[in-house]
Structures are given as C-alpha cells and as structure tokens.
Amino acid sequence: MNRVYDCLLYFSAGICGLLLLGAVAGLTGFLLWHGLPVLGLELFFGSLKIGEIVDVIFLQQVVVDGLWPAVVGTCLLVLMALSTALPLGLGAGIYLAEYAGGKAKTLFSLTFDLLAGVPSIVIGLFGFSLTLYLHRQFSSLTPCLLISGLSLALLVLPYLVRTTQTALEDLPDSLRLTAAALGAEKSATIILVLLPQALPGIFSGVVLAIGRAAEDTAVIMLTGVVATAGIPRSLFDNYEALPFYIFYTASQFSDQHELQQGFGAALVLLIICVLLFTGAGLIRKKASYRLLYHSK
C-alpha cells in the first residue's frame, strides 16, 4: 500500500511540473509563432524607408503605423518613474538601514510593505484623484505623462527602498567597524565605503523597478495613456505605451494587420521584461558572490 502512495506522490508532482512547463511553453510558443514573423523594422516604423527612420528618431517625421510612439512613451515613463523614485528610494533605504532604529524602523518599513502591497490600479486611482484635485487649482491640468510618471514612481518606490535597505544590511559589520576605526564619520562611511559595496544589490533593484514600470498597465490606464497620440511634446501631453497598446489591440483590433501588430508588441514587451528580470537576478547573484569572496 505504501508503494502505491509513493507512486502517487511522484506521479502528481510530475504532473504539476508538466502542467507548469506546458503552460509556459504554450504561452511563449504561441507568442513566438504569431509574433516572430512580424518582428522587424516594419513593426516599429510602418512602411517608412531607412532614411525616413532617421528623421523619425530626430522627431522630423511622424510614425503613423507602427510601435515607435508606444516604445518612446514607455521609455519616457520608465525614465520619469526612475528619476523620481531613485533618489527617494535610495534615501529612504539608507535611512532605514543605517540610521533608523527601534520603533521608527519597524513603523517605517511596515509602511513601505503596505505600499508594496497596494494594487497598481489603486495607485492609478490615486494618481487620477490627484489630477482631479489639482485640476480645480490649475484648470489646464489633465491626466498626462507627468502624472503617470509620478504614479509609476510610487509603484516602484517600495522595491527600491527594500533592495537598498537589504543591500546595505547584508554588508559585513567589519566594514563599518574598519571605517570607524580609521576615523571616518558616519556619512563618509556610508558614501565612500558602504554604498560602493552595496551598489550591485541596489542596481539589481533598479533593474527590477525598470521592469515593473515598463510592464504596468493599470496605473497608466487611469492616468493619461491613449491609443493614438504620437510622441508627446511635453510632460502635460497624452502619450502611448507598449502595454496599453497590447491591451487596446486585444479588444479593439479591426483587421488582421492590427492583430499582427498586437502580437508583435506582446512579443517585444515579453522579451524586454524577461531580459530585465533575468538581468536583475544575475546581478544579485554576482553581488552576493562578491560579498562572499572579495570584500572581507
């Protein structure tokens, strides 16, 4: 009888593994099958010639039929979210790891945990409410690139805080003691000794944050992304973005060509995100290896 149970255990675990691998293979295979044939310059720039593509990059020409504006929109979003969240996340991470103690530390890190758990659509709703509120003061303000960028910054902030904090806390105490023994002040120790050592860990958090900002759809849906806007001219313009393009195509495509474009966009986003997340993992591994064998 025990034998039967053992077999059952092996069998069901095997089934679980096959189901998971099958699902992943099905998903990526399906996207590759439909997306690979359209992957190329035409997907991004439509029917433009090579010379015209150069013009597009220098904003001299508009792309009508292609992913280019969506790609640019996503890059701008990531740039804005990161440039806002990075200084804040670094600052808060350093404070939590090196200065805060006792009750304050517990309270602060609990709050960042809360923020990390807030669903992205609720963050989007917050961005939207903020716009409504500001609209009463400055009537020209509508949902736009600026609001989306700031909301996304809020979304990735807890990741940056957490990775900075753990990267610093994982450093061996001998580093802090040595610096102090050499007469370095605390701020000098942090800037000159601890941060350089923690850099790979922090960097992996940044890469992860880029991935989150690039893939999130719910936040930008409420804060100013539209289906066709071209390249935004200012921070107060509407814009396009890759994940929203995919969502929009899935429900609103009118012909085979648009559907193909949607598959192409989905494949591009999948490749970008998987590369970013794998990259973050590799950096973290490198960082822990360095900590183990080189810093002591």
Partner: peptide, 9 residues
C-alpha cells in the same frame, strides 16, 4: 517577469 497584460493577451 512575464507582464500581466501578456497573460491577458
């Protein structure tokens, strides 16, 4: 690392 919008798509 797979975006949710891709699961949906």
């Amino acid at each position: 690392g797979i975006p949710t919008v891709i699961y949906g798509f």
